[in-house]
């Protein structure tokens, strides 16, 4: 007996079904990718602990941003474009000569060694967030470049390509110390 071929299923509505699904996904999802600048907030000190000892002025890199998004770096006005180089020069300064891997100018008025170099960021409550983030970005880049240079000279490759333990040692060579004071109230 001749076998009867199976009847063909009408696939005309397939497009409609796919369109329905497509529109559902268009409506419920967003394109935005989650990217950002990662930072660690400073630990909150318990109330009965003595405040940390006063730091030498040369080890402090004070960045003061006012309500008009103008920046004062170590008492001098500075444009955001110069901040990265200034921060690098400060961290890498190596006044004491203890830091064997630094390339700094050994300026007596600048930081002792990377472990001692503290960047203090002071803002005003009226400072705009985008300017603050730009400053954070430049500081992050300054450390990133210093770490990359160090990683290149010790391991022969960039920081991003290192193993986990090697990354840790690079981070310890150039620890990122950014302290943030409570913003000043605008009168």
């Amino acid at each position: 007996m001749a076998r009867r071929s199976a009847p063909e299923i009408n696939a005309g509505s397939m497009a409609d079904i796919a369109f329905l699904l497509l529109i559902f996904f268009l409506v419920t999802t967003t394109m935005d990718v989650n990217k950002g600048i990662e930072r660690r907030l400073p630990q909150k000190l318990p109330p009965n602990v003595a405040p940390p000892p006063k730091m030498q002025k040369r080890n402090l890199f004070i960045i003061d941003i006012n309500a008009e998004d103008e920046m004062l770096v170590r008492g001098k006005e500075m444009k955001i474009g110069d901040l990265k180089e200034a921060a690098k020069a400060f961290v890498d300064n190596n006044r004491t000569g203890e830091c064997s891997y630094c390339h700094g100018a050994r300026d007596p008025a600048s930081s002792d060694k990377p472990e001692k170099a503290v960047i203090a960021l002071k803002t005003n409550r009226k400072t705009s967030y985008k300017f603050y983030l730009s400053v954070q970005n430049e500081l992050g880049l300054a450390y990133k470049e210093l770490r990359d240079t160090y990683a290149e000279s010790v391991y022969g490759k960039g920081y991003a390509d290192l193993s986990r333990s090697a990354k840790k040692s690079v981070r310890e060579a150039y620890p990122m110390i950014i302290s943030e004071a409570k913003p000043i109230e605008n009168q």
């Binding site: 990662e38 930072r39 630990q43 009226k126 603050y132």
Partner: peptide
């Protein structure tokens, strides 16, 4: 402005949540 951002950061420190990420593109 930084006022509201620093309020958020203070509250996070209060809650001992120290890992933050500033969203940016």
């Amino acid at each position: 402005t930084m006022g509201v951002i620093s309020d958020v950061k203070d509250a996070l420190r209060e809650a001992q949540a120290y890992r933050v990420m500033y969203s940016a593109r």
